[in-house]
Design a protein around this nucleic acid. Sequence first.
DNA 1: TTCATTATTTGCCAAATGGCAAAAGTTTTT
DNA 2: AAAAACTTTTGCCATTTGGCAAATAATGAA
Lengths: 194, 194
Amino acid sequence: MTTFVTMDKLINYLLEFGQLNQQQIDLIKGKIQVLELKKGDYFSEAGKIPKQVAFIEEGILRVCYYNSQGDEITKYFIDENNFAVDINSFNQKIPSSEYVQAVTDCTLLVFSTESLNDLSATIIQWDGIINKITEKALVEKVNKLSPMLAEDATTRYLNFIEKFPSLANRIPLSYLASYLGITQSSLSRIRKSI
Amino acid sequence: MTTFVTMDKLINYLLEFGQLNQQQIDLIKGKIQVLELKKGDYFSEAGKIPKQVAFIEEGILRVCYYNSQGDEITKYFIDENNFAVDINSFNQKIPSSEYVQAVTDCTLLVFSTESLNDLSATIIQWDGIINKITEKALVEKVNKLSPMLAEDATTRYLNFIEKFPSLANRIPLSYLASYLGITQSSLSRIRKSI
DNA sequence: TTCATTATTTGCCAAATGGCAAAAGTTTTT
DNA sequence: AAAAACTTTTGCCATTTGGCAAATAATGAA
């Protein structure tokens, strides 16, 4: 199945962080590979060195890992109009310790390492744009996580619903419970109590 | 009181992220202002637009804010050999929502906005180095915060002690309790139980 | 030193969350 | 449709943490 993808979301997103002329935009579009993931598919896996960066055109991904007790922990969810990559592993070219998995069917716009290198070498503003995007994404993650510690589980759940209204009842309890830092049965009880 | 400061820690730290020749190093050193803070002093305050970036040569800072209920929350601690700045407010030149306070007496190496601009314009590698440092610091924060949600308060406290062995009993309970996401009395009980 | 102030600990009880296993509900496979 | 596999809910009880106020300890000022 092929889906028509305009890439407008991506281009508009990039333009928020710097100017690009039409020639540069066309160059960028030419580097992109469209990747459709079905719910449950993995975009990248622990143990492998990530070789791609994805912009989420449509859908929701989650980043997860296994902790020292062997529990699968959802570190965070990433939604539409954001980039997904294990930035540390990608930059340092070391095996990732995380999985990136499609929580819903997704349309991803994928850049390979080589494409990114080309863009970096060709478009003078590229690195600056990417750095701004990276920084903003990380700051957002910190600002999201930090207050969660002070909130009780019900509040964390309500905040999740607010951010991902369509998701709460359509993903496995385990994804959400581990993200919220509670057990599945506690989450089930919280749901009932609301 | 004037303290002799070699700035070696800073230079070595910068060199981890990129190469610099002696001339560049001297230029950087010339832009630095040494700032001594006493325990409790503020490096920057909420409501103000941050105009400085600090490298912690000696001591420990904390970043804190007031939540919607008016509680003072310690967002994180920053120790020696790290930069401190409310990066969002600094870059966007908007008033900060956070305080940066000395938890112990500190020796800071301070760059002003203008100095940073000069260095950025003069040293070709500067932006790259700063971006790498920024990214690494933010990734570390995410990786630190994320597992805390899944740990119980005692584990979080033990991890804190491990990272800041000298601090646990020398700072107000309130700093630490709000960082750990528990009340002061809970922290007091956890302390006793260990 | 003494008083005043502030920080920490403690007691008491309530609320939140965990652990485990069984029951109920869903989905997938045959 | 039935069976199997998997997910979610629930019961029961233990543990953790919170809330509040009083007691104690530590700190700073007069």
